[in-house]
Nucleic acid binder design. Structure first.
Lengths: 284, 284
DNA sequence: TTGACTATGAAAAAATAATATCAAAGCTAG
DNA sequence: CTAGCTTTGATATTATTTTTTCATAGTCAA
């Protein structure tokens, strides 16, 4: 229940001091309640014990519990209309349109959770030809890792996508050097063996680790040098990876553009070597 | 100055732990910073001293001073409609920001290129348990196909992801029945052998074919019953598949929600059968 | 006016939170 | 690989905040 509402419900049975508090709280709601109990007492000309008793009377565990509730309320209130719409109920109206607007939200949020400096650092790491790049993802998120590795392979050499089977990982681990990069995608539900891989790879070779994960932070992130965290809650039955996808595309584009000359030559050479059963050449 | 901006400014000279904190703060900005120092340390897998040092480095007197600032920011943001999301990020020349806005355009365009009737038809096809589903994609776009098949497999049985090697395709073709569905993802540069696969599968078994492609229309689309065409030109060196990705997520969500009861049971059963080296069970 | 009760805040105590210290681990340049 | 530097978190300390205790002041009915 809203703090505001609790105040109203109880307003008939408040003492003089409590009414003073109530007024002060409502006058600058909800920020007044975020002061320390001492400050609030000074401002309202009351005392800490009175406030403490008051919030207990409102039904909270204590002053800190009360503050936690206020913060949650602010949080709720600040969610954009789209966000609000999200948690609530199943999508109605035009499904696709609605879904897209949620995805767009998620994507913007993903981008704003990452500083441009961090973005550049990771791009530099993955674009550096002197480093080998090893990639792997979880059961579902491996699709993202695959997408990244396929593109990266067009840009540079030394890109290795680890197979899903842990039995084979040691073969790759033995080749990792401390300058190399292990790029992991791990969204909930996190896979234990990925965290284990991160730990051991780090311990053994000191490899640089970059983790793409969600806000709960994959256990693998503990061993990481860089963490990209993106939101994934779309308010539907599945988590949405579109934020991650766009971020990865941005990254790949950045890497390719940085060394465009080299990349172009590489793609041309690649194309000339493709087997005939591959692409046709008259596309475009 | 906004806390957010201070983070941006300093992000080039942060240590690993500090970057972790920075990530966590930005991901749930500004609320993450309102926790107690101890809680925040637990959530981020760091320690209170590191956080204390970090906020000092950001230029605050200490953690409490830092929190005061955050609260002030929230307050400000709520007063002026021009809230912090707009005002404080230096948009100019920010690569990521720019990329995201293009991607968003692309995604909206992708959605509006598809009628809801068609969308529903395809969802029904792929959701129909009486049909087997075969999926395959091109060199890069197979990541999308993989993503779809992994999800679909959580919802229903009879989902088969064809391997990249054409030698093995006949094995699958022999099993295709006319009610089954062959789902192909083929973006330029189109692969001849995919078109060939479509042609022969159609001829041999009369299988239903759904193709996800771009506006130039993969040659495989000639044999298709349904074509999803999404724009992919992002104005950068790579094509962007984010439109396709969001569309696929929308589709998967639609399918899962349509038979949610069955899906839920299936996922539960699946989870109970997972091997221990997979996910941990305590993830939230 | 008195007595029984409630409300209140000063002060002390307790709980909680934040910072300083320091040893160990990690990293980097040679 | 090592020496020297930086980073880090466990522990101890300190500071801050909140709650408890308790004495006093206020209220009201008889």
């Amino acid at each position: 229940m809203q703090v505001r509402q609790r105040l109203e419900n109880l307003s008939s049975e408040l003492t003089a001091t409590e009414r003073k508090l109530c007024t002060a709280l409502l006058l600058d709601y909800p920020y007044a309640g975020l002061d320390t109990i001492q400050d609030l007492a000074n401002k309202t000309g009351t005392s800490p014990p009175s406030i403490s008793r008051f919030v207990t009377k409102l039904g909270f565990q204590g002053y800190q519990d009360f503050q936690r509730h206020l913060i949650d309320e602010i949080r709720q209130a600040n969610r954009s209309p789209l966000d609000l719409h999200v948690g609530d109920r199943p999508i109605q109206g035009d499904f696709l349109e609605d879904f897209v607007s949620r995805a767009v939200n998620l994507i913007s949020a993903s981008a704003s959770a990452i500083t441009s400096a961090q973005f550049e650092r990771v791009c530099d790491l993955l674009g550096d030809e002197k480093r080998n790049i090893y990639l792997i993802g979880g059961r579902i998120s491996d699709a993202i890792a695959l997408y990244v590795s396929r593109h990266l392979r067009q840009v540079r050499s030394g890109v290795f996508h680890l197979p899903a089977d842990p039995e084979i990982w040691p073969e790759y681990m033995l080749r990792m050097r401390s300058k190399d990069v292990l790029f992991m995608v791990d969204y909930r539900r996190y896979q234990r063996n990925l965290a284990e891989l991160a730990r051991r790879a780090k311990a053994q070779s000191g490899v640089q680790i970059v983790v793409l994960t969600d806000k709960w932070m994959s256990p693998a992130a503990n061993h990481a040098n860089e963490v990209f965290a993106t939101p994934i809650e779309s308010g539907t039955v599945w988590d949405s990876y579109s934020g991650a996808m766009v971020l990865m595309e941005a990254m790949l584009t950045r890497i390719a553009e940085t060394n465009w000359d080299k990349t172009r030559k590489r793609i041309e050479a690649w194309d000339s070597l493709r087997f005939d059963h591959g692409a046709r050449d008259d596309d475009q």
